[in-house]
Computed example of a mutant assay.
Amino acid sequence: MIGGDKDTVARAEQVITPMAGRIVHTGGPGMGQSAKIVNNMMLFINLEACAEGSVLAERLGLDPRVFWDIASVSSGDSWALRTWYPVPDIVPSAAANNNFESTFSAVLAAKDVGLALSAGEQTGVDLPAAELAAQRFPRLIDEGYGDLDCSLIVKYAAPDGKVQGWNPDEV
């Protein structure tokens, strides 16, 4: 996601191409940042849904793999579900496989969703789902888990804070 005039973007692409899987020219200056803010806001809303859904499915007695197999090919699907699902041994890239060692820290998530909420205020857009997601990350930070993965918000969906893959004694 890169913003700027065509000549500037063309020059920047020469440097960025070796690091990027795909480059999207988003418009004028600042539009790349705008796209990142909105995209990450949507990610964190989806992550909150994955956190709540994974705990509810488990508490209802569903096998975590079976539930993930269903959700990943139906209306519950999202990038967060396929990449960061907060249950161990379901997706290889999930932080839940490694006691929530950071792939994307709670501190960074709090910053990004905060930027989205600020943009919503500036533009008059009501963002209640983003506000809900935003409440989770400061809690992790306040508990001393800001450097851990943002998907650890899953622990707030569990009434006792205990979820598979999370052992606070090993942090």
Results as ranks from 00 to 15, higher is better:
residue 52 E to D: 08
residue 159 P to Y: 15
residue 120 G to D: 02
residue 111 K to G: 00
residue 81 L to S: 03
residue 23 I to G: 00
residue 93 S to Q: 11
residue 47 L to E: 07
residue 77 D to S: 10
residue 78 S to H: 05
residue 167 N to T: 08
residue 164 Q to S: 14
residue 44 F to G: 00
residue 2 I to Y: 09
residue 38 V to T: 14
residue 14 Q to M: 13
residue 103 T to P: 01
residue 33 Q to Y: 09
residue 61 G to L: 00
residue 74 S to A: 13
residue 83 T to C: 08
residue 22 R to T: 09
residue 18 P to W: 10
residue 116 A to D: 02
residue 50 C to D: 08
residue 137 F to K: 02
residue 19 M to K: 10
residue 117 L to M: 06
residue 125 V to Q: 11
residue 40 N to I: 02
residue 103 T to R: 15
residue 113 V to T: 09
residue 17 T to I: 11
residue 115 L to Y: 12
residue 49 A to R: 09
residue 18 P to M: 07
residue 114 G to P: 00
residue 52 E to M: 03
residue 51 A to N: 02
residue 137 F to P: 07
residue 4 G to L: 04
residue 65 R to A: 15
residue 103 T to E: 13
residue 165 G to V: 00
residue 135 Q to T: 06
residue 71 A to V: 05
residue 13 E to A: 11
residue 62 L to D: 06
residue 112 D to F: 01
residue 82 R to T: 10
residue 1 M to W: 15
residue 67 F to V: 06
residue 150 C to G: 07
residue 90 I to L: 10
residue 150 C to Q: 11
residue 103 T to C: 10
residue 146 G to T: 01
residue 58 E to K: 12
residue 146 G to M: 01
residue 48 E to I: 05
residue 35 A to H: 11
residue 36 K to T: 07
residue 138 P to K: 05
residue 50 C to Q: 11
residue 154 V to I: 09
residue 11 R to E: 14
residue 68 W to C: 01
residue 95 A to F: 12
residue 122 Q to F: 07
residue 164 Q to M: 09
residue 74 S to P: 04
residue 9 V to M: 03
residue 149 D to K: 01
residue 139 R to M: 12
residue 20 A to G: 12
residue 167 N to G: 06
residue 129 A to R: 12
residue 114 G to T: 03
residue 55 V to A: 05
residue 153 I to M: 13
residue 66 V to T: 13
residue 137 F to T: 01
residue 100 F to E: 04
residue 63 D to C: 00
residue 25 H to D: 05
residue 34 S to H: 15
residue 125 V to H: 14
residue 115 L to K: 03
residue 120 G to R: 00
residue 66 V to Y: 12
residue 114 G to R: 07
residue 74 S to M: 09
residue 122 Q to T: 02
residue 157 A to S: 14
residue 15 V to N: 14
